[in-house]
Amino acid sequence: MISMKKDIYSKNPEFCKNSYTIYICGVGGQGIIKTSTIIGNGAMNEKMNVVMSEIHGMSQRGGAVSTELKIGNYKSSLIEEFNADMIIGFEPIEVVRSLNKANINTKILFNTTPIIPSNITSQKNNYPDIKEIIAILKENYNYIYPINGDQLAKESGDLLTLNMVLLGAATADKTFPISKNKIISSMKDNLKPKLHDMNIEAIEKGYEKIKSFQ
């Protein structure tokens, strides 16, 4: 007779093969859902199985937005606690809020420009210092990639390309399962032609930024 005592903690390597999970978070209006769709579409084009969860609703009214992407044998679109392979954060404190999905080896890539909640003066807690956030994250996680995404987006021609800066940055990490070129072609499937050039530039800028870290 076999006991289930220890076995429930052991994972089935066959099921976990080619698994990659990405948690994306930020504030409504930053292009988070579009970014996630482009990744998912890219994964599908590469013949991978992919599922994604997105929460809509109050997103246009300044609330937090997050999506979860799971590539691999999964049927459910929610990432288990401490199980994200990558977190892409569009806003610093939203990254901190997502840390229950992170483990020590999660790639945590984020934009350092804060969006202060509009009701901050009536809240008990202050907005934390960005440098301190980065320092604490670096103490606790092996792969922290803070980048000034807003700056790179403006250089690419429009602040709205922030999402492609961060996505380009993600493709520079060698664990990321979809190549930069495949992401660019998925972007073209999902955005209007007149926006392509600007967003290619944004993807390249983000990509170069992370390459310079490595």
Partner: peptide, 21 residues
């Protein structure tokens, strides 16, 4: 989270409720 400093940071974040635009 295990690290106290990290846990303090997480537990003392300002929230981001939806508001009138």
């Amino acid at each position: 989270l295990k690290n106290t400093k990290l846990n303090n940071l997480v537990e003392n974040l300002p929230n981001r409720p939806p508001t009138f635009c």
